[in-house]
Deep mutational scan, measured.
Amino acid sequence: MDETGKELVLALYDYQEKSPREVTMKKGDILTLLNSTNKDWWKVEVKITVNGKTYERQGAVPAAYVKKL
């Protein structure tokens, strides 16, 4: 869990989004888990830093590609 009490997951593999509802992640990324009720796809929040600014993006990733921490 992070400092706000939200559950975290670890990306076990790289994943490139294939639709606007998904998010890209790299192996080793730590993501915030938002919903894991679907056994195949979990909704997560990814933090992306671009030019020193951090953005948050929500989307789905394959459940088999992440592990709860």
Score class of each variant (00 low, 15 high):
residue 52 G to I: 03
residue 50 V to E: 11
residue 17 E to K: 12
residue 19 S to E: 06
residue 42 W to I: 05
residue 8 L to W: 13
residue 24 T to W: 04
residue 35 N to T: 06
residue 31 L to E: 01
residue 68 K to A: 08
residue 20 P to K: 09
residue 21 R to T: 13
residue 67 K to G: 06
residue 43 K to D: 14
residue 9 V to T: 01
residue 4 T to V: 12
residue 62 P to G: 03
residue 37 T to G: 09
residue 55 Y to N: 06
residue 44 V to C: 01
residue 54 T to I: 11
residue 32 T to Q: 08
residue 26 K to T: 07
residue 32 T to L: 14
residue 2 D to K: 14
residue 61 V to W: 02
residue 60 A to R: 14
residue 36 S to Q: 11
residue 66 V to H: 02
residue 65 Y to S: 10
residue 3 E to Q: 14
residue 39 K to L: 09
residue 59 G to T: 01
residue 23 V to E: 00
residue 13 Y to M: 11
residue 18 K to Y: 03
residue 11 A to F: 03
residue 41 W to I: 03
residue 1 M to E: 13
residue 24 T to Q: 03
residue 41 W to E: 02
residue 51 N to P: 03
residue 50 V to I: 14
residue 24 T to I: 04
residue 43 K to C: 15
residue 57 R to G: 04
residue 51 N to L: 08
residue 58 Q to H: 08
residue 55 Y to G: 05
residue 10 L to R: 08
residue 6 K to T: 10
residue 58 Q to W: 07
residue 60 A to I: 15
residue 39 K to F: 07
residue 57 R to L: 08
residue 19 S to L: 06
residue 35 N to H: 07
residue 53 K to V: 14
residue 27 K to A: 12
residue 19 S to V: 03
residue 51 N to C: 10
residue 40 D to W: 14
residue 53 K to C: 12
residue 66 V to W: 03
residue 28 G to F: 03
residue 20 P to N: 10
residue 27 K to T: 05
residue 49 T to C: 15
residue 2 D to A: 13
residue 46 V to C: 09
residue 59 G to R: 01
residue 2 D to S: 13
residue 10 L to Y: 10
residue 57 R to T: 07
residue 24 T to M: 03
residue 17 E to H: 08
residue 36 S to H: 07
residue 44 V to L: 01
residue 44 V to H: 00
residue 7 E to F: 11
residue 37 T to E: 14
residue 40 D to K: 11
residue 14 D to W: 05
residue 17 E to M: 11
residue 28 G to Y: 05
residue 25 M to I: 15
residue 28 G to S: 02
residue 28 G to L: 02
residue 60 A to K: 13
residue 11 A to K: 02
residue 22 E to G: 12
residue 39 K to Y: 06
residue 39 K to G: 10
residue 27 K to G: 04
residue 16 Q to S: 10
residue 36 S to Y: 06
residue 24 T to G: 08
residue 21 R to L: 14
residue 13 Y to T: 08
residue 13 Y to S: 07
residue 16 Q to G: 06
residue 4 T to Y: 12
residue 23 V to C: 04
residue 2 D to E: 13
residue 68 K to Q: 09
residue 8 L to E: 06
residue 28 G to K: 01
residue 47 K to V: 12
residue 67 K to L: 10
residue 45 E to D: 02
residue 12 L to C: 12
residue 9 V to G: 10
residue 63 A to C: 08
residue 29 D to Y: 05
residue 38 N to I: 04
residue 41 W to Y: 06
residue 15 Y to T: 00
residue 39 K to V: 10
residue 1 M to R: 13
residue 9 V to W: 05
residue 37 T to K: 10
residue 14 D to F: 04
residue 47 K to D: 02
residue 12 L to H: 02
residue 66 V to M: 06
residue 26 K to I: 06
residue 40 D to L: 12
residue 46 V to Y: 08
residue 64 A to D: 12
residue 17 E to L: 07
residue 38 N to A: 08
